[in-house]
Amino acid sequence: MTAVRRTLASAGFTLGLPLLLLLGWAVATRSTTTIYFPTPARVGEAFVATWLDPEILGRDVLPSLGRFAIGVALSIVIGIAAGTVIGSTPWLRALLEPMLEFFRAIPPVVLVPVLMLVLGLGDTMRLAVIVSGSVWPVLLNTVEGVRARDPVLVDTSRSYRVRGALALRYFVLPAASPQIMAGIRLCLSIGLILMVISEMFAASSGLGYQIVFFQRQYMIAEMWSGIVLLGLVGVVVAAVFHVVERRVLHWYHGSREVSRG
């Protein structure tokens, strides 16, 4: 009984605010005259007509999501690999840290024209834009997580001769994983933004391109529906991340609950 009530309450909390916002939007636009503020019904209509169309789904949405997935996956792999090496090698860290801060501070958007010249106008350039922005939180968090291993555990593994791949698998990466996961969470949202931005240059298809195209064609409801789609993608990505994070860090959340008593 209470379980049912709890589920209902949780659903209410999850959906309550979005529904309220939707209601407020509908009320605010009920006597709308300008095309710049369409009603939710009009945007919903445009959403179904635009994004559920198999042609647009296959030409714009899926390729965009594919680039997002590959770009983020590359960022995570590169970030963890390079971060582990840098974090466990003090001299390398001292050597690279100022450089990393320098490159991290460069907004990927300003690199687009350069990347366009070097890598052409295709998917490679777009992936490079995504990776050039979203690799940093993973990389820097991994460096920090690996560097801050518990010194007692470092000594313990050393005395038991736990080294190399073994240490990496059972000690270094797990120890850094809470930090790495926090980096990945940031990486996902930055990756989504950069996916859109990368499609605003030299494009002829993609989710970001379509949104800009609709804006320029004064198809404002369609433009809003694209923005809604991006938001929904963000929600789904966050939900998937949440599930994965729970599994990867179950020991960590468990130990934190224990330590909190």
Binding site: M116, L117, G120, L121, F201, A202, A203, S204, Y209
Partner: peptide, 20 residues
């Protein structure tokens, strides 16, 4: 024809790089 969007000032470099 495959049309792509390139800002006017970038077009010369993109032509020379063979991207368009």
């Amino acid at each position: 024809i495959e049309f792509v969007e390139v800002a006017f000032p970038d077009a010369k470099a993109q032509l020379e790089a063979g991207n368009i």
